[in-house]
């Protein structure tokens, strides 16, 4: 087989097996299924990226076309219902796995020295995931989306002193409008994803560099 001779040649130049060994053949303590939640979240994020890019092929973030373009995705495009369904349920599932992952880390005290930065980036990832949920919820531009965002931004507006400013910054004006839809779309497909990808990079680097903690024992 040609790959038998090709691989060592490529590996010598690219160092693929070194990368593989560092990421997949690293030492881990004996752990349980709760330790798979980070990987599950990473898988769901990748799925959200793929299905999200696919949805952006047909979705239009404008007040007069957003709803119609989703109707077209659901009824007019082959497998549109499937792509959107995966994105919808993947989002819900991702919030759940992120939370369970955090609870696992918390109850096993894995956030302690030397993993404080892993924990901090994890908390930021949780917030960014919630931000994705909040901004993505408006995009269908139906009654539920409109009023949920009206309520959500009003809650942010209840902050003492700067509340009004926060509300106008979120909505892009006093009222929920096409401006809100456009900025939520931008946040949903550009800002939050880039923040999340950067934070995942740091998070995974630290997991690989420091290694994962073992399950705490009774007399430790």
């Amino acid at each position: 087989m040609i790959s038998k001779r090709m691989f060592p040649w490529l590996d010598e130049r690219l160092g693929i097996s070194g990368i593989y060994k560092t990421i997949f053949d690293r030492m881990v303590p004996k752990v349980n299924w709760w330790f798979t939640l980070g990987s599950a979240t990473l898988f769901l994020f990748a799925l959200q990226v793929v299905t999200g890019i696919m949805l952006s092929v047909y979705y239009v973030p404008s007040p007069d076309k957003a709803y119609d373009s989703i109707q077209y995705i659901m009824n007019g495009v082959a497998f549109g219902w499937l792509i959107r369904g995966i994105h919808h349920w993947g989002a819900t599932l991702m919030v759940i796995t992120v939370f369970l992952h955090m609870l696992r880390v918390f109850f096993y005290a894995a956030y302690k020295y030397p993993r404080e930065i892993t924990w901090t980036t994890g908390v930021l990832l949780l917030l960014a995931t919630l931000g994705m949920g909040f901004t993505g919820y408006l995009l269908p531009w139906d009654q539920k989306a409109y009023w949920a965002t009206t309520v959500g931004t009003s809650i942010a507006g209840a902050v003492p002193g700067i509340g009004d400013f926060i509300l106008r910054a979120l909505r892009g004006g006093n009222d929920l409008s096409g401006v809100t839809l456009a900025r939520f779309f931008s946040a949903h497909i550009w800002m939050f994803p880039l923040i999340i990808i950067a934070l995942i990079g740091v998070h995974l680097y630290l997991v690989i560099r420091i290694g994962i903690s073992s399950i705490p024992k009774e007399n430790e």
């Binding site: 696919m54 092929v57 495009v77 082959a78 497998f79 549109g80 499937l82």
Partner: peptide, 10 residues
């Protein structure tokens, strides 16, 4: 496979 169908559907 659905992704390919989705893209070429129109």
């Amino acid at each position: 496979l659905p992704v390919i169908g989705y893209l070429i559907s129109p």
